[in-house]
Design a protein around this nucleic acid. Structure first.
Lengths: 254, 254
DNA sequence: ACTTGTGAAGCTGTTCACAGCG
DNA sequence: CGCTGTGAACAGCTTCACAAGT
């Protein structure tokens, strides 16, 4: 669905569904683990279990990429790793800047998952002059004044915002003005960006609130005695709750 | 972002769609901001803009909660704040434990968004004996040995895992065995949990990979073919052609 | 006149079940 | 045989557009 271009008319483009794109990294991780164990091939059933999805979904997802499997056998691990990496754009180098080097920013800078997948932390930026020059994860922090120059000099197109909420929009505007077209936002605020810029958000408190909602329901079902809410009735026994699952889109509009 | 629950007909929690539940925290945040500015009422159009969604969706979402608006007028801010808070279960106190006090764990412990929404950090737990007793965000870190006792003594039902991937499943098992039924997982691994336990995951590298996918798509505008990529090499593209909007991912028109 | 609340339509994503092929 | 790949049915979510209220 992300193939833009079409606005209202049916998007009959050759695009990969957004839900599928969101799962590719999951498959890739599972495949990488298999690769490290030198497993040559894997069936949709096995791989699906490792990724925490069901096999029909996985096969459908892969069918959007092409016919990379062998009937009666399964998928070639190495080949799939390459195909998915290519599809995700991980065969190239993505310089990334992290703005806001507090606890979270530092955690991100130290996070190994970035470097291992083609993402290179090109610079750490913070508004606090006292931070300037101080190394975090082996990279010296630079002052916000340098932001535009850093973006341009390194050809950065992906920015990570880990600042307090109050500074996020301003930082976002500067990143976009300097040429960044994809932003990962950790600040608990809605960012306004021009069309053509992608924003994904990660909001810690929202995740907890969603858990609280479900937690509250569990409590209510058990002790259905003192419920102020009318409802529930005989709650059907719920099925499993296993691995992770697809997700709700997080790309926001301008 | 991510969702726990899986392989299930996506039971609509007490009639409220999961997608709606995921947006309630967003509305709540926008409403809280309005409340602090003493704004008495707000229209679906205004609130939707503040939350970054469209108004039809917002009205539909609220319709699942009940008829809390007034036609021709809008919604009463305070009343809505209360209703949504209640629906999300935020009118009660949720003791939370954070396991794994590295950079990320520390960032979470310091994150203000927790305390302000009914979440109380009951304890910080780490496997490193050297960390024991050391205060982080004003709370002394306790050793993993104490995990079970802490969970039981504090009636904790929500746990946050911020350990390395290798330790996550083990920590998860112990949390669940001790009574935790909701888990927010930051470790890049798929957790297996018994039925009835909710898991939501936040995976930093997955978010970046999704952005990379869209970023790559932006770059190859016309060349839609599956051209062979020059494998290695310091591929650096991104020539800021900020002009003709080729239009990209975009999810919805403003 | 203004804005909510909601059937209905349209779209996206998931699951089923089996044809197709090694 | 076993396993992939996929049309078709199904389910859930979003958007539309207007009736219903104030």
């Amino acid at each position: 669905m992300a193939t833009g271009r079409t606005h209202r008319p049916a998007t009959r483009s050759r695009g990969i569904p957004e839900a599928t794109v969101a799962r590719l990294p999951l498959y890739l991780r599972a495949l990488t683990a298999l690769s490290e164990r030198s497993v040559p091939t894997v069936s949709s059933e096995e791989l699906a279990a490792a990724a925490g999805v069901n096999s029909a979904k996985l096969r459908k997802d892969f069918s959007y990429l092409g016919s990379y499997g062998t009937r009666g056998v399964g998928y070639d691990v190495e080949y799939l790793v390459y195909q998915i990496s290519r599809e995700l754009g991980l065969t190239q180098d993505w310089p990334v800047v992290i703005v806001g080097i507090g606890n979270l920013g530092a955690a991100l800078a130290n996070y190994g998952g970035f470097a291992s997948r083609g993402f290179r932390v090109a610079a750490l930026i913070d508004a606090d002059p006292a931070m300037a020059g101080k190394p975090v994860a082996g990279i010296p922090v630079q002052h916000t004044d340098e932001l535009e120059a850093i973006i341009r000099d390194n050809g950065v197109s992906i920015g990570v915002i880990a600042t307090p909420a109050g500074a996020a929009q301003q930082v976002c505007d500067r990143l976009v003005a300097a040429g960044v077209t994809s932003i990962l936002n950790f600040a608990p605020t809605v960012l306004n960006v021009p069309e053509g810029v992608d924003v994904r958000k990660v909001d810690l408190s929202i995740e907890l609130q969603i858990l609280a909602f479900h937690e509250q329901r569990k409590a209510g079902e058990e002790a259905a005695a003192e419920g102020p809410l009318p409802a529930a009735g005989a709650a059907r026994k719920r099925s499993a709750d296993q691995g992770p699952d697809g997700d709700v889109p997080a790309v926001m509009p301008a």
